[in-house]
Design a protein around this nucleic acid. Structure first.
Lengths: 131, 131
DNA sequence: TAAACACCTTACCATGACTGGAAGGTCAAG
DNA sequence: CTTGACCTTCCAGTCATGGTAAGGTGTTTA
């Protein structure tokens, strides 16, 4: 199967698929004309990678997950550990963003938003924390 | 004031300060020995940038905010508009992360996490959505 | 049969916002 | 005089692609 077809099946741009080969995540065969030739197994791997990436796993985590995916003897604890650490990261990121949101909302709510220059948002950024 | 001192006062790494100069966010003077020489005003700008970046504004947004900061005739509406658009972005990002978190939590909760190979997380990534 | 067009190849540059390191100049203290 | 803490510029790397160029291949159509 050519890369275009594999791209459709996996929901990954061809560019990305070639990049995954470059960093040794997959190694498709080659046809006589030099075109990459993807097997059904390869497409499974690509779909796996697409899903894992869209869940926020980094390429390195995907590499770990993929090797667990291909290992019939894996323990589910190994997989769960990776997922839990990613969950912790996501939770932390959410907390940070919510704190940012609160701060900005507070500033915005105190800004008149008219054509006068007084602006508590700028004042805060400038370090004048009068509020 | 040398860059090391400016770095302490602004809470920005010296590397970052030099980078900000490279992209024309600030332009400190130079001492006779060629060292950068930061004024109090420069440090105010750096602190402003540090705060704005930590609130999630991009460099380009910081550039806008900085020019508003330096413009006594600015309208607070201009500032509020930028802040509101950033707020919308942050909200969207939070929604995405919460959705990721929910999906992952669901998967993790169904995974035994023992030394057997059965793993609903891997199954899901592989595209077997039995759950 | 030939041209048009879709697809494939490699190779290189760009992104955002830094961070790290090499190679070297400057300056104060011991 | 030398050590060490600073400072300088320049070059390369990060992450996960995206863009573009220059060219080879394969199928369809005039």
């Amino acid at each position: 199967m050519n890369i275009g077809h594999a791209s459709e099946k996996s929901n990954l741009p061809a560019k990305t698929i070639r990049y995954y080969e470059e960093i040794h995540l997959i190694k498709p065969g080659r046809a006589e004309n030099g075109y990459r030739d993807y097997s059904i197994q390869d497409v499974h791997r690509l779909r796996f990678l697409q899903r894992a990436r869209s869940l926020g796993f980094t390429i390195d985590e995907c590499r770990q997950l993929l090797s667990l995916y291909e290992d019939d003897e894996r323990s589910s604890a190994d997989v769960k550990r990776i997922a839990n650490s990613k969950l912790a990261e996501i939770g932390e990121k959410i907390r940070e963003l919510r704190s940012l949101e609160a701060t900005l909302k507070h500033l915005v709510s105190h800004c008149n938003g008219d054509d006068r220059p007084e602006c508590p948002i700028i004042d805060d950024l400038a370090g004048n924390n009068d509020a």
